[in-house]
């Protein structure tokens, strides 16, 4: 029980810091850091949903950024068509992304393992090219939005309002939701199917249905991240769906520690930090970032959660197992 409390403690600490940031940082004239934190939180929401697939479900998807982008575009197009209420846009984004997840997931899950990875990558790329061909909505260049969504007319969900807080609360909700889900009946079946699909099927579970449901849920959560990304950037572009963004998300969940409670969040904070620090040292920081990933892949197996908090809770055991398991 102690260990469980500890991962909650870490989470509480991070949230306290994130909550304090908008009050403290302006005092020390570091408001720039706030936009970095927003970036990390938006990434974390998407990464949490990806971890549901990869960490808990053993489904390595390399097309997850597509859901973020589709959510963002659905909301942006809704906004352009005159829908201003963010709740209506939320429903729109979640439904469109969920539908895309349902169709592509049903196809991709006809296979497993590395096939699944290739197919999600391909469908992600399809989304990317489709978005670039949307000429009325900016095509290649993306779409700059001139008016942003409101909450029943209030600007609380805008950059000028409390968007930071809204994003923080959404992050908390995603974290909590996925945490509950992974321990519920559904999550247990999902983890069982990851560890031993044959056995799980013979127990009487149709793993296809559980995996597809997880895929759709993950796509929907990613769409929420997309909606908020749009609201923050006041801009959408096909680059959001680029496969490198999917790769980044995968890096985040692996870095953070697969299937661990705080892995996706730690990974996102870490990635933004690395990008910022390396990038401020020299412009061609990717020359270091690339080899860093190679070294990670070769040597570190448990991710950041394991590195920072090496106590082996039951979840960490799961994660190491998922790491060693052939997908």
């Amino acid at each position: 029980m102690m260990r469980v409390d500890r991962s909650f403690l870490v989470m509480a600490l991070i949230f306290a810091l994130l909550l304090a940031a908008p009050f403290v940082l302006p005092l020390v004239e570091q408001t720039y850091l706030l936009s970095l934190l927003i970036k990390a939180m938006l990434l974390a929401i998407a990464a949490i949903s990806l971890d549901l697939l990869v960490g808990h479900g053993g489904m390595v998807s390399l097309g997850h950024a597509a859901f973020v982008a589709i959510g963002a575009y659905a909301a942006a197009i809704g906004l352009e068509s005159g829908i201003e209420n963010i709740l209506a846009l939320l429903v729109l984004a979640v439904l469109v992304s969920g539908l895309f997840a349902l169709v592509t997931g049903a196809l991709a899950l006809r296979t497993s393992g590395v096939y699944f990875l290739m197919i999600t990558l391909a469908f992600g790329q399809m989304a990317y090219f489709t978005l670039t061909s949307l000429a009325p909505y900016g095509g290649d260049d993306g779409l700059t939005l001139w008016s942003m969504a409101t909450l029943f007319g209030s600007d609380v969900v805008q950059n000028g309002g409390q968007l930071y807080l809204v994003i923080l609360l959404t992050l908390l909700a995603s974290w909590w939701g996925v945490h509950r889900l992974s321990n519920a009946r559904f999550g247990r079946v999902l983890r069982a199917a990851r560890d031993n699909p044959g056995r799980t099927e013979i127990m009487g579970f149709s793993i296809f249905r559980y995996r597809l449901t997880a895929y759709v849920i993950a796509g929907m959560i990613a769409a929420v991240s997309g909606l908020l990304t749009m609201q923050h950037a006041e801009f959408v572009s096909p680059a959001m769906a680029a496969w490198q963004r999917s790769g980044d998300l995968l890096v985040i969940v692996v870095l953070g520690g697969l299937g661990t409670r705080n892995g996706a969040l730690l990974g996102a904070l870490f990635l933004v930090l690395v990008e910022e620090v390396l990038g401020s040292i020299f412009h061609e920081w990717r020359l270091l970032y690339g080899p860093l990933l190679v070294l990670m892949a070769l040597h570190a197996k448990g991710g950041l959660s394991d590195l920072l908090f090496p106590a082996h809770g039951p979840e960490t055991t799961d994660a190491t197992r998922a790491n060693g398991e052939q997908i």
């Binding site: 056995r199 799980t200 009487g204």
Partner: peptide, 27 residues
Amino acid sequence: SVLPSFSVLENVALAAQAKSGSSFRFF
């Protein structure tokens, strides 16, 4: 063929779960 990372109890409880109502419960 068992679920190696699950506890013994959880292995069996999951099998029971398969026959006791829906497992599409998320909370």
